[in-house]
Amino acid sequence: MSTQVQEGEEGVIYMRGRVAEVLLGAGFFGIMATLFLGFHWAPSVSINAFESPAAQRIFYWHVPSAWAAFIAFGVLFVGSALWFFKRSAFGWRLHVAGTEAGLACGLMTVWSGCVWGAAEWGTPWDWTDVRLNTFGLLTLLALFLVLGRQSQPDGVETRDTFSTFGLYGFVLVPLTYMATRIWQIRHPGPVVAAGDSGGSLESSMALVLMIGALSFTLFIVGHMLISMRITQLEQRLEQVQNSLDGGI
């Protein structure tokens, strides 16, 4: 189960081992367990406080996937900075992994949010809710970066341009995080990490959410490790092809 780091002929480092797969698998089973506990074990919310109380259970998917998306966007930011300022190939692989994981988790969050919105608010999307919109923009940024990277040949121009978007786009992360502390339009204020006022979440609900957050974290870390490995193999393949072409 150990991860080996091996130095290639041209100084390329690539990983072997099963750590990524183990994390991905553990995360997957954790997410399944979260869903099971969320649907069958966690208590129901007050029927007086919600238009559609049953739909509230989608939060055991929605909140952890949003948490994982923020981790992925953080990785995207760090990777972008490492490439842009240090010209680190490892940084670029982090950037790629962060965008792909950010897109996956962002879509999971947005989709589950739309389901909740349709059930509780009567509309799947509200253009006046700041958190909803900034998170949607983050997901679109991740989609832009994934599609954009696929449309361009790999090179310093591509990496510089998309790293710049990754760096500037990260502004949306603290904005999204702070949005409900400033504007509580549709999303409620903090219920888990509420600071002095304390959280309003029942302990069993909080436990399921914690299991969900941990599972999504494992899943997304595994996803990013595999993504980095694929990027590295793509680069290695291109190097081999170039050498077959008689180039570098």
């Binding site: 923009l137 940024l141 989609l143 832009f144 954009g148 361009q152 040949p153 121009e157 341009t161």
Partner: peptide, 16 residues
Amino acid sequence: RLVRPNAVFLRLLLPI
């Protein structure tokens, strides 16, 4: 600066 500037999905960023 991109090699294929017309191939990127710029419109995805416009909802901002």
